[in-house]
Computed example of a mutant assay.
Amino acid sequence: MEHFLSSMPKAELHMHLEGSLEPELMFALANRNGIELPWDTVDQVRAAYDFGNLQDFLDIYYQGAGVLQTEQDFYDLTWAYLKQCETQNVIHTEPFFDPQTHTARGIDIGVQIRGITGALQHGREQLGISSRLILSFLRHLSEEEAFTTLEQALPYRDSFVAVGLDSSEAGHPPAKFQRVFEKALAEGFLTVAHAGEEGPPEYVYQALDLLRVSRIDHGVRAAEDPALIERLIAEQMPLTVCPLSNVRLRVFPSLDQHNILEMLARGVKVTVNSDDPAYFGGYIAENFVEMHRQLGLNRDQAVALSRNAFESAFVSDGEKAALIKRLDDFVANYDGG
């Protein structure tokens, strides 16, 4: 079963590039750029990854992101993630990046986008991994700052397909960003938003109604509102769920108490993703494997979750059909490895 899960063609729709910064690469980039880190060894960094909540994680996450300085750094970060995708048969990915994390340090948004998109292009050419990029606004900052970021990004509009909303959810409702999302929609971008992770079901409603999202990132607390769950089912609104992340950030006390399979059984369009894999104990295959070990995930459920992700991808109908065919062919021909 674990071989099946690792080998199964997958799409990842919720993964922060800065959150894929492994300690080894963090140290390499720090050395290259002459940056002093508060840790002396890789083991010390990993020991720091014991988070009590989302904010504990974000404090370390932003500190780690400080090693990203040059176009080559952003390329190397993205390429390292794509090589992980290759080993886990992720054949399509739609990663997030947080430009404000870097522009606040004086790193031009063009430097970020050129480095990231260069790696994504090489991923398509050399690894056969298709991709779309999503620009995320930091919700703990102001909407005015998000507007500035969007304006900075418009000269590179062909490099990303959607805007998102991430960072500290508590106290920063989606409604805070309604106008900048309206602007993004008017410019032709799709929208997504983190909602219902630490925030209440009301934030999911706001993301749907005010930000007009095409996907909800996380969304697990929607289960607290039966009417909201019925709406998500009726609209087939995708939820990009991140099981290992939810446990590490104490959204659920343990993986065996996670609600993803209950929502799948109800007909919610849930998907599996890794969120910030360097920090949360695994990439997408590890999420599937741990769900098998601790939640009893079976083959049919795994295939349904993977199919949901391909169906929810921001690609043309033709690309979507080709990706799903690869999944169907794999399932039909799998001989146990």
Rank of each mutant, 00 (worst) to 15 (best):
R231Q: 07
P226Q: 10
R212L: 11
E224S: 05
A222L: 11
D225N: 09
D217R: 00
L232N: 05
V213K: 13
L228F: 08
A207N: 09
L210P: 00
D225C: 02
M237I: 01
E230L: 03
P226E: 10
A223M: 13
V213M: 13
R212M: 11
Q236H: 14
L210R: 12
A222K: 02
D217A: 06
S214F: 01
A223Q: 14
R221L: 07
A234G: 06
R231S: 01
D209P: 03
I233H: 08
L208I: 10
R231Y: 03
P238G: 03
R231W: 03
L210E: 12
R212D: 10
I216F: 12
L211R: 10
I229L: 15
S214K: 02
L232T: 04
D209L: 09
D217F: 00
S214W: 00
I233D: 07
D217H: 01
V220F: 13
L232W: 01
R231C: 03
A223T: 01
A207I: 08
Q236M: 11
S214R: 04
E235W: 14
T240A: 12
L211M: 09
Q206M: 14
E224V: 02
E230N: 12
P238K: 11
L210A: 01
A234P: 00
D217L: 04
L228K: 10
A222Q: 10
A222C: 14
S214C: 00
I229F: 08
S214M: 02
L211S: 04
Q236R: 15
D225R: 05
R215S: 08
Q206T: 08
E235V: 09
A207R: 04
H218P: 08
R215V: 05
L210V: 02
R221D: 06
R215L: 01
L232E: 04
A227D: 04
P226F: 14
H218R: 00
E235S: 15
L228T: 08
A234S: 13
E235D: 15
R212F: 07
P226V: 07
A223N: 15
I229P: 15
L208Q: 06
V220R: 00
R221C: 07
A234M: 05
L228E: 11
R215W: 03
Q236K: 15
L239G: 04
I233L: 09
D217Q: 03
D217S: 05
L210N: 05
I216D: 14
G219L: 13
P226Y: 14
D217G: 04
A207V: 08
A222M: 13
A207G: 13
Q206S: 08
A223F: 09
R221Y: 07
A234L: 04
R231K: 10
Q236S: 15
R212E: 13
Q236W: 12
R221P: 12
P226M: 06
L211E: 09
E235Q: 15
M237R: 13
E230W: 03
V220G: 00
A207K: 02
E230G: 12
E235H: 10
R231A: 00
E224R: 03
R221S: 09
L211V: 05
A207S: 15
I216E: 15
E235I: 07
Q236N: 14
R212T: 09
E230C: 05
